[in-house]
């Protein structure tokens, strides 16, 4: 079996790109790909990492969605390639319209960096099949705009797309939403950072199973 290969897209201002590459490499090959790339055809999985693309000026993710690479991300999403947007990457996926809803500032109006406990709501996605349903996993957050919002009708419609919920809501997200997938199930957006939970020295290894699942797609 050939080893799977993931693209970690670096936008100007991305700062979790190297962390993602390092975490993914425990399970698969991974390259950093600059945001000017026009094609991602060579990759079996795509990660949009955290950070402050374009300084988060205007609105988190609002400028990155105009990067040349985004067209290739859309094409890959259509083809069913698994795509994860983490933190700023989630915000970019929302801005591109690949996932429903939007992000508001945390209710505290402050950036918050902390370990959090997530409840795994779905285990039938390509990303979460290695977790148990309703399992509690420790994955940290670090964001200022992670307060997920969608209107009530959308919320009813996407109930089945909710993948992770916060056990103790740190930012005000509706329905404690920490991560959602698209209807097709191949695009995941999550505010918590699984790449920061891959080593016992970092306090949690619960992110490893997500990387392994991605490599097994």
């Amino acid at each position: 079996m050939t080893r799977k290969r993931a693209a970690v897209v670096s936008f100007p201002g991305s700062n979790c790109d190297e962390d993602c590459v390092r975490a993914l490499r425990t399970a698969m090959d991974a390259d950093r790909v600059w945001h000017t790339a026009r094609s991602l055809d060579a990759y079996d999985a795509i990660v949009l990492p955290g950070g402050f693309s374009y300084g988060d000026y205007l609105r988190a993710g609002a400028i990155a969605r105009f990067s040349p690479v985004i067209e290739a991300v859309h094409a890959a999403a259509e083809r069913g390639v698994p795509i994860i947007g983490i933190c700023n990457g989630f915000q970019i996926l929302l801005e591109c319209g690949l996932l429903p809803g939007t992000m508001r500032k945390n209710v505290s109006r402050k950036f918050v960096c902390a370990p959090t406990t997530l409840v795994v709501a779905r285990t039938d996605t390509v990303f979460t099949k290695a977790y148990d349903r309703l399992e509690r996993i420790r994955i940290p957050i670090a964001h200022g705009e992670g307060n997920y919002y969608c209107d009530e009708e959308t919320l009813r419609r996407i109930q089945h797309q909710i993948v992770f919920r916060y056990e103790d809501n740190p930012n005000g997200s509706v329905d404690n939403i920490a991560g959602i997938v698209n209807a097709a199930g191949n695009v995941l957006g999550m505010m918590p950072h699984p790449e920061r939970a891959v080593d016992r020295w970092l306090g949690s290894t619960d992110g490893v199973r997500l990387m392994v699942a991605l490599a097994a797609v």
């Binding site: 962390d19 975490a23 960096c113 670090a142 950072h193 970092l202």
Partner: peptide, 24 residues
Amino acid sequence: YAQYDYMVRTSTIVPPGSDAAVVR
């Protein structure tokens, strides 16, 4: 310190709150 991203670069072994921070 909750307002500081003290984990980015995934090398922070001892986060803020102990006698000294430890970075791998």
